[in-house]
């Protein structure tokens, strides 16, 4: 059955028709064309589908699309704006934190949520915040570096590249 519903994704509110059993991830990827969020495991194990729901990380692959009605959905496409990439995105690029890049969108959303709550996270707090996102390429080390650099960039209000040079 096709259901008409209204979703707000990255600031835009749109009315869409989706099969009523769709997850939020399916609606994002296959109806709205936001392919940044990834499907890695089909059941909430890997975190590649992580989006923000009213600022909180959520696994969109196990979230019925109806759960997102009247809430703000932010995907990786919504992190960068007219002013350029989010400091996290720049820091990931600077540190080589994205190798294959498939887990990156989900990790960025978990990290963005962390930095909203805590601008000076410790290494352990970063590890905790990302523990629901599997990465198979990096051994996470460069990802921890990137999040620390982005946190400093946000705190000091300067580009991530300057933080790395400093």
């Amino acid at each position: 059955m096709i259901e008409a519903l209204r979703l707000t994704v990255n600031g835009d509110t749109q009315e869409i028709g989706v099969p009523s059993h769709y997850t939020l991830l399916e609606a994002l990827r296959y109806v709205l064309g936001y392919t940044g969020s990834k499907q890695g495991c089909d059941k909430g194990d890997c975190g590649a589908c992580t989006v923000l729901l009213d600022g909180q990380p959520a696994l969109s692959c196990i979230l019925p699309v109806q759960e997102a009605i009247d809430r703000e959905v932010t995907t990786v496409e919504g992190l960068a704006g007219p002013d350029g990439p989010h400091p996290l995105q720049d820091a990931f690029d600077l540190t080589g934190a994205a190798q294959c890049g498939f887990c990156t969108p989900g990790i960025l959303m978990s990290a963005a949520s962390l930095l909203q709550r805590n601008q000076s996270p410790s290494n352990h707090e970063i590890r905790e915040a990302l523990s629901g996102n599997l990465c198979r390429c990096t051994g996470y080390t460069k990802i921890f570096d990137a999040v620390e650099i982005a946190a400093r960039a946000l705190r000091e209000n300067r580009p991530a590249a300057e933080v790395v040079r400093a």
Partner: peptide, 9 residues
């Protein structure tokens, strides 16, 4: 390809 990957593109 880093920025393309980090922005989900």
């Amino acid at each position: 390809d880093g920025m393309s990957k980090s922005t989900g593109r």
